[in-house]
Amino acid sequence: MVESDGASRVARRPRILVFSTNNISDPGIDLAGSQHLHYSPAVSTITVPCSSGIQPTWVAYALEHGFDGVFLAIDGDECAYLPDCNQRSSRVAARAQEMVKEKGIEAQRIRMSAICSVCSEAFVKHMEEFSAVLGELGPTGERVP
């Protein structure tokens, strides 16, 4: 079993799912580790080849099943696959927001920003800000059975 560090906290930390990309944003997130920066351990990352391939349904699924927020760490202008990756990824985020709104989940639980392969500090800052916002919002309703 996990040893408790003994610290007592009143509320659990907001759970954030990050979608990152193999060649651009994931190396940036890795770099935060190499630099021994810190962010909340309630942040976990799933990596895909390109942010344009993130399915809005995955984002909705995460929020419906217990994540409090989803952050799309998109390729931005550096995407090696698609020149219009930015627009496509924005479309994914917008569609995911529409999808969750219909289910009564706040659209601001979905955030998106380009994270470059050296954007470690920017990533950590995003996680801090997003955690704070989600902390205010509270947990994402009831778990969908």
């Binding site: 996990v2 890795d30 580790g33 021994h36 810190h38 351990p41 309630a42 976990s44």
Partner: peptide, 18 residues
């Protein structure tokens, strides 16, 4: 490592759960 132990070196319980 890069996405867990190194970024949560300040929180053993949190890092382990993650």
């Amino acid at each position: 490592r890069e996405q867990c132990s190194w970024v949560h070196s300040d929180d053993r319980a949190g890092a382990t759960a993650k």
